[in-house]
Design a protein around this nucleic acid. Structure first.
Length: 218
DNA sequence: GACCAGGCACATC
DNA sequence: GATGTGCATGGT
């Protein structure tokens, strides 16, 4: 039932042919990517953009500056992204970690190796596996494959994973098979999100699904 | 007005 | 260990 490398790469090819390169992550700096990764938890990206625009407007899209805001002020600025109270708290947890350990420098942070960084990030309140891996791959250019709800749904609809598979199972499914290639990891996840927004919601064969025929399902 | 969106922590059994 | 629930805005 788990896919072969060939199957995984065929899925990638199909999605890329449909959508083209997605140019992820949408963000001008590694820090903006980190902030976006927390703000987009269970939230539409359009809403995150509004929140980030507010931070830019105030000229405080900077780890030290953001940490200097009161929690209430921070929450009011990120309001459009939803869950603004919890996310203000989560952002502050991350900012505290980032400033205390790396002086708010993504370049310094990136010098550490992947396993250590992943462990550190997962220890920060409000950062789970998807957020940690998004920061690692898209902000710090580490070789880690990002899994999300779409990934599971798409694989499951196409008979390529079990319904009960967890985050780590699915991550291993990809990383044990496809080349260790950061641009490929980047694009593959982005294409899964693009596909998942409109397809594979209920059946593997919606009329316009770019993955029709994948894994030779009837 | 229901439903969904690029999750996560915490309570409870 | 599995399951349920709160968190909240904005678009369709």
């Amino acid at each position: 039932m788990p896919p072969t490398k060939k199957t995984l790469m065929e899925g990638f090819r199909l999605m890329l042919a449909r959508f083209g390169p997605r140019g992820w992550w949408p963000g001008e700096t590694p820090f903006e990517v980190m902030v976006g990764a927390i703000l987009t938890q269970n939230t539409n990206w359009k809403n995150v953009e509004k929140a980030i625009a507010n931070l830019k407007q105030e000229d405080i899209l900077d780890p030290h500056a953001m940490l200097g805001l009161s929690p209430q002020r921070l929450a009011s600025l990120i309001k459009p992204a939803g869950y603004f109270r919890v996310k203000a708290k989560r952002l502050r947890s991350f900012l505290k970690y980032f400033v205390e350990n790396y002086d708010g420098s993504a370049r310094k942070m990136a010098k550490r190796d992947l396993p250590q960084l992943r462990e550190e990030l997962l220890a920060v309140n409000g950062i789970g596996p998807e957020t940690a891996d998004s920061i690692l791959l898209y902000a710090l250019k580490k070789d880690i494959f990002v899994i999300d709800a779409y990934t599971k749904r798409i694989l499951s609809r196409h008979g390529l994973c079990a319904e009960e598979d967890c985050y780590d199972d699915l991550q291993a499914l990809f990383m044990d098979r496809i080349e260790k290639d950061i641009p490929l990891y980047n694009e593959y996840h982005a294409l899964i999100v693009e596909t998942g927004k409109d397809f594979c919601r209920t059946s593997p064969r919606c009329a316009e699904c770019p993955l029709n025929g994948w894994n030779n399902l009837p």
